[in-house]
Design a protein around this nucleic acid. Structure first.
Lengths: 344, 344
DNA sequence: CTGAAAGCGCTTACAG
DNA sequence: CTGAAAGCGCTTACAG
């Protein structure tokens, strides 16, 4: 293959200087006269010189790439939210002089504990894991010899640093808000054994009930997905008795906007209007929040801040491996829309 | 910074052989006895050796990265479709031994003809440009010294290879279908000067009209966005006369599903029901197709095939720079749903 | 079957 | 202010 690469050597030869001088001039280091520096820069531009990052990487032993691993199940047409977060991360990385490499983790690779190529081939200096992975895979990641951080989930049994939205407090606030609007019979929708987020949101909901002396009713905890994360048909309490609204909750705390969206469809199909008959709140403030009719009152997750902390941390950790972050909780923000009715 | 890197040197030293032998053994090359080869592989695994791609990249002058440039305006919450395509591309690249680096092109960088970092720093061996860029930027890309391909748009004035869906034929088919259902007064929705896709879809619509001896009515060509791509309020024909349905088209060919979705809302707000009063077809089969009520009859774009051609081509082109692809048209596929009424 | 030498394009540490 | 030497971790071409 023909290559017409311009290197520092070429510039040096043309000017009768050494590559050392060219290197110093191009990176604005001391030890070259201003005059020569200018001449070198001009010639470089004129010759179409491009800096070879690979050589630098070789020298430093650092690729200046950060890997972002996302489990495939979180990247479908309907759930492209993490891809938007990835975009954000890649932008922030670039501003910091790094580049992101996306690695989609298939269900199969996750199950078979397949080591990601980006790690096995030393493609990256650090890893951001975006989206809950299995226990086994967490352990695999933990043994990897580079800085890593979990984003949007954590694991209580490993000490990998994690950045999550304040799920607990968010659901707590949302439930408090429903109660302030006069609701007392409030359901929670989500499989509370499937991810740490869903579980923590559930606990926040529960805390709010406790504080208001409302007894937790297990019949009002409605699962939304199987253990593999696949959505299942929602079962309304008393769904076999469509005409007994007195047994229905007056409000639903959904673990995410998409489920809130699906729940509303289900409620409508059973003859319940939202928010007239039932109030519904979501979580995430993603695209489903404004696709739903009515638009959802929900908890906005501050992904920009979360991404920004993740990027800053992972880069800092490359130069200071002893850095510890622990578990960072990023506060969300209630967005008031039209899915909650005041029943006082 | 402490580094505990295992290199081929370390393995070689432990075994009292040369790095050449280790290199050959690990990459299954000839010239090492099977016995020694096995011993080397075992020791490598045991020592936790990871292959250093950067060294290989240095040697070959090839990074084994492919850059994917997406203009920022195509990556919003509501339009994350290209990010899903990016995911697909990154998966295909990984299968082929490459990695994708996403580079989001901001409006500002596009306007100021800022050279992408991934190019200036020789981070990538090839470039996939996903989504229409400005004329000026096309020229900048054209001058770049590496293989590149346009995905989902093309430019008639440059000879960069391009892979697009068959917009022309797709809109032609969709319009034919509407006519077969008895429609004759058919509008087109889209700014026909904004992108090659919208323009070609318009021309396909027009060809169908011509073939059926239906006169093109310029009042039925409705713009949907300004020259910067920002959506504008849709103006229905005769929208000032809400009660004169006799002047309304009975069908609308929309340049994309999102606009079809917005159009339906607009129609509803003016008192027109879809598909009872007006039929609507979309294009893309993206998330808006099933968010809309009714669900849209639309043209499914075969992005999997398009991505796969793009990846294959760019990789082939790295080893055979003289390769030419021209403009590849990938056929779409009509998806029949509920937004078209037979009016015969 | 095995290995010494050279080189990919930079940078660092040192000498002048 | 300027540059010769060495080295980052591999691979290729050649010699034995």
């Amino acid at each position: 293959m023909m290559k017409n690469n311009i290197t520092m050597r070429d510039i040096a030869n043309k000017l009768g200087v050494s590559t050392v001088t060219v290197s110093k001039a191009l990176s604005d280091k001391e030890g070259v006269s201003d005059e020569l520096k200018l001449k070198i820069k001009q010639l470089a531009a004129q010759m179409g010189y491009r800096y070879n990052t690979t050589a630098k990487a070789m020298k430093e032993g650092l690729s200046h790439n950060i890997g972002v691993i996302i489990p495939e199940r979180f990247t479908g047409l309907a759930q492209s939210f993490y891809l938007i977060v990835y975009k954000q991360i890649s932008l922030l990385l670039e501003q910091a002089g790094y580049f992101g490499i996306l690695s989609i983790l298939s269900d199969q690779d996750e199950e078979q504990l397949q080591i990601p190529k980006i790690y096995a081939e030393k493609k990256v200096d650090g890893l951001i894991i975006l989206g809950q992975i299995s226990k086994g895979y967490i352990q695999l990641v933990q043994e990897m010899d580079l800085p890593k951080v979990f984003l949007d989930f954590y694991d209580e049994h490993s000490d990998i640093d994690a950045i999550v939205t304040d799920n607990f407090y968010g659901a707590y606030e949302l439930t408090n808000y429903l109660i302030s609007q006069g609701h007392t019979k409030i359901a929670y929708v989500g499989n509370i054994n499937s991810t740490s987020s869903i579980q923590d949101r559930y606990l926040g909901y529960y805390k709010s009930l406790l504080e208001h002396n409302i007894k937790l009713d297990e019949n009002l905890v409605i699962s939304d997905r199987d253990e593999r994360g696949k959505y299942i048909e929602l079962e309304l309490p008393n769904s076999d008795l469509p005409n007994s609204p007195q047994n229905m909750p007056t409000a639903f705390v959904c673990n995410c906007d998409q489920i809130a969206y699906l729940l509303i469809q289900k409620l409508n199909s059973k003859g319940y209007a939202v928010p007239k008959d039932c109030s519904v709140v979501g979580f995430d403030n993603d695209i489903y929040a404004t696709i739903a009719t009515p638009h959802l009152t929900t908890m906005e997750v501050n992904f920009e801040q979360m991404s920004s902390i993740a990027v800053k941390y992972i880069i800092d950790k490359i130069s200071s491996p002893s850095l510890k972050l622990g578990r960072v909780l990023v506060q969300g923000n209630i967005i008031h829309r039209d899915s909650v009715q005041n029943v006082k």
